[in-house]
């Protein structure tokens, strides 16, 4: 930010402060992983130790896996997040294109509604959607987890802003070449918008893999639990005081996203900030 390097003292001070912060940011993760390696007896000694004296990693993780269908939870999480993202692209990308490049009646009104929708969190609409799903008889299904998020006004807004920057000539060229409007969306706009779609995808996957509020409301059967529900359920029913096992469960739930994040940090940070405007 300063446009020039810091002096040696200031540089060292910078590292001292940032390292202290880093320790605070990281310690829950380190604590979680190390505890997941420790047997219950060592945890109950109430002493601050770093590495376990007796490694109980395998039994802790195996306990999680045998006591709850953890694989099923992860699979549910993958199915739900992937379906949500696929549907979001399918529904919102064409709408974003129409809003950006077509003239049709009701376009301004639709865009105004999209802007309004940006302000509304899912929490505000949860009760009516719950009632609707109750009457439709689709509570406790994948559909209940997926459908409310098939529409993403934020996705529409973001992709529309991106499409506004695509030159009209490209679309006109495609029309002259005989590509239909629907063809333009998938053959021309989607490939052109890949960076924006990727950023949105990361945002969407992170948000819905981690979501707890809506699955908690919509799902009652264990078979359909997503990872956050699974780990909360595990704490409540099976491993509330078996801390090593509980930490192993938490580690399993956190791992997929954290691993993906560490592999593609820049994209993740871009994706989440880019979309940070949502609030």
């Amino acid at each position: 930010m300063t446009g020039r390097g810091l002096g040696p003292t200031a540089g060292a001070l910078r590292h001292v402060v940032l390292m202290a912060g880093a320790v605070i940011m990281l310690s829950p993760f380190v604590w979680m992983v190390l505890s997941s390696f420790k047997p219950q007896s060592e945890i109950l000694t109430a002493e601050l130790t770093f590495l376990p004296q007796r490694w109980a990693a395998i039994e802790n993780y195996a306990t999680v896996w045998t006591r709850v269908p953890m694989g099923r939870f992860l699979l549910n999480g993958a199915i739900v997040t992937a379906s949500i993202f696929a549907l979001q692209v399918l529904v919102n990308l064409p709408c974003a294109y129409a809003l950006a490049k077509l003239r049709f009646r009701g376009r301004r009104a639709l865009f105004a509604v999209v802007l309004l929708g940006l302000l509304i969190p899912i929490h505000a609409t949860a009760i009516p959607i719950y009632i609707l799903f109750h009457h439709a008889g689709i509570l406790n299904t994948y559909a209940a987890l997926i459908l409310p998020f098939a529409i993403s006004v934020f996705g529409i807004f973001m992709l529309r802003q991106f499409f506004m920057t695509v030159p009209d000539d490209l679309i006109d060229a495609a029309r002259i070449d005989g590509v239909s409007e629907i063809g333009i969306v998938w053959r021309v706009m989607l490939p052109t918008a890949m960076p924006a779609v990727t950023a949105f995808g990361i945002f969407s996957v992170v948000a819905h893999w981690n979501d707890y509020f809506w699955p908690l409301i919509a799902i009652g059967t264990r078979e359909l639990y997503t990872p956050p529900l699974g780990v909360a359920f595990f704490r409540l029913n099976d491993g509330g005081t078996e801390y090593g096992v509980l930490m192993a469960a938490a580690t399993i739930v956190i791992m997929p996203l954290v691993a993906a994040f560490l592999l593609a940090q820049r994209r993740f940070i871009e994706g989440v900030t880019f979309t940070g405007l949502k609030g």
């Binding site: 880093a22 990281l26 993760f29 992170v206 981690n210 909360a232 739930v253 956190i254 954290v258 993740f268």
Partner: peptide
């Protein structure tokens, strides 16, 4: 490191 908590599943 500072961004890690943003990514991690809050409930876990």
């Amino acid at each position: 490191v500072y961004f890690l908590p943003v990514m991690a599943t809050l409930i876990a």
